[in-house]
Amino acid sequence: MIFGVIVACEIGFWIVLAAGLAARYLLGRRRLGAVLLAGVPLLDLVLLIASFFDLRAGATAGAQHGLAAVYIGFSLVFGPSIIRWADDRFAHRFADGPPPRRPPKSGRAYMRYEWREFGKACITWVISCGLLFAIIVFVDDPDRTDHLWSWIRSMSTMLGIWIIWPIVATVSSDDKSDSARDGGRDLEKERPR
């Protein structure tokens, strides 16, 4: 049952997002669009309630419950930026808005962007693992919740791998800053006095 609710929530996310953007830009009903877009997190609440009742009814926590917790964490943290991404593109295409913003490719802006995305991943980890741990404590039956520990390990591994990108961005940003400073000093030395 939970897997079906997850699929329904994911489909619902895109339907509500499309309806909100269509109301805002195609129908010119900005307030209705805002209400629809604000309703997107309600899908997470539906999923959380469904997971709670499924476990309360005696179900053994499985992959679907782990996926539900991860989905909730991801959509709460990354959902607003996905909505902004879609909104930028919709506005550009249908409302003569400016071209969509693109993530920076290099320099300090790229470094800040990657650290911000990693920070969002950390918040996702806290929410998802917090929900997983809450389920483990709530059910209080290791035989029924053993599978959820593997989700916590997987999320932790993912976070450990994700940190590579901001570190690489920081190193490449520092290298460019150093070479710009060194290059500037070399030009000063070569300049005739």
Rank of each mutant, 00 (worst) to 15 (best):
I2N: 03
I2Y: 01
G4C: 05
V5A: 10
I6C: 05
I6L: 07
V7S: 07
C9Y: 00
I11M: 12
G12Y: 01
F13Q: 07
F13H: 08
F13S: 04
W14T: 05
V16A: 04
V16H: 02
V16F: 06
A19N: 07
A22G: 09
Y25M: 11
Y25C: 11
L26M: 14
R30L: 10
A34D: 15
A34S: 10
A34K: 06
L36F: 08
L37D: 09
L37G: 03
L37T: 00
A38H: 09
P41A: 00
P41D: 04
L43W: 10
L43M: 10
V46E: 13
L47M: 07
L48H: 03
L48V: 05
I49S: 08
I49V: 10
A50D: 14
S51R: 00
F52Y: 14
D54P: 08
L55A: 02
L55F: 04
L55M: 06
R56G: 06
A57E: 14
G58C: 04
G58E: 10
A59T: 02
Q64F: 11
Q64M: 10
L67V: 05
L67Q: 10
L67A: 13
Y71T: 06
Y71D: 12
Y71W: 13
I72L: 03
G73E: 05
F74W: 12
F74I: 03
F78I: 01
P80I: 00
P80Y: 03
P80H: 00
P80E: 06
I83L: 13
I83V: 11
A86V: 07
R89N: 13
F90S: 14
F90R: 06
H92K: 09
G97P: 11
P98L: 05
P98K: 02
P98C: 00
R102P: 04
R102V: 02
P103Y: 02
S106W: 08
A109G: 02
A109K: 01
Y110Q: 08
E114Q: 12
W115E: 12
W115A: 08
F118Y: 13
G119S: 04
K120M: 06
K120P: 03
W125H: 09
W125L: 10
S128F: 07
G130T: 02
G130H: 06
L131D: 10
L131C: 05
A134C: 03
I135H: 06
D141T: 00
P142L: 08
T145R: 11
W149F: 12
S150Y: 14
W151P: 11
I152V: 12
R153G: 07
R153K: 09
M155E: 15
S156R: 04
T157L: 15
M158W: 15
I161N: 15
I164F: 15
P166I: 02
T170V: 08
S172Y: 14
S173V: 01
S177F: 10
S179M: 04
A180P: 03
R181M: 01
D182Q: 00
G183F: 02
G183L: 05
G184I: 00
D186I: 04
E188N: 10
K189N: 13
E190D: 15
R193T: 11
